[in-house]
């Protein structure tokens, strides 16, 4: 779905339909639809909801859950919260960034994968935790990460594993 060009009125109406005075829900809708928060959509949404653009932008930059840049098709998220950290999440981050050939926070050049880190996903008992799209992988080790990834790539045909580095 392109976020540019044609009239956006319909889409904006759709995105703001359950607007109840709080902008966060709307931002979640946008992020769900486009994978990130496109600038032109935010501008339209600000007009529609009566929020000033700077307020929308403040909220969008405040929360780590919102992205202002396009993300990869698949998001690989490693928890680096306290519990995950002490149980070796940095190893998983290293392994993933080696496999994908990107640093945490970046997206592979083919736009397939984004590697991200978060501070605690609220499932510390499963530490260290890696989430690929909506699949949770508990108590990961570098070996587990590799295996999981190969399986994942095999299951979703378009998601080919990049060459790595």
């Amino acid at each position: 779905m392109s976020a540019k060009g044609h009239c956006l009125c319909g889409e904006i109406q759709e995105l703001t339909r359950d607007f109840n005075g709080s902008i966060i829900g709307v931002l979640h809708n946008i992020q769900e639809k486009y994978g990130y928060l496109p600038e032109n959509i935010l501008r339209e949404v600000a007009k529609e909801t009566g929020f000033s653009l700077i307020d929308v932008y403040s909220v969008a930059t405040f929360y780590k859950a919102f992205k202002l840049e396009p993300k990869g098709k698949h998001v690989v998220c490693v928890c680096t919260g306290t519990a995950c950290h002490v149980r070796g999440s940095d190893k998983a981050v290293e392994e993933l960034s080696r496999m994908l050939g990107v640093d945490p926070g970046d997206t592979t050049s083919d736009g397939q994968y984004s590697l991200e880190t978060v501070n605690c996903l609220g499932a510390c008992a499963l530490a260290p935790l890696v989430v690929v799209d909506d699949h949770y992988q508990a108590q990961v080790t570098p070996a587990k990460v590799r295996k999981m990834f190969q399986e994942y790539a095999a299951n979703s045909s378009e998601a080919n594993l990049p060459a790595g580095r």
Partner: peptide, 9 residues
């Protein structure tokens, strides 16, 4: 005017 505000955290 609402031209500026806090960003990030």
């Amino acid at each position: 005017a609402k031209a500026i505000g806090f960003v990030e955290r």
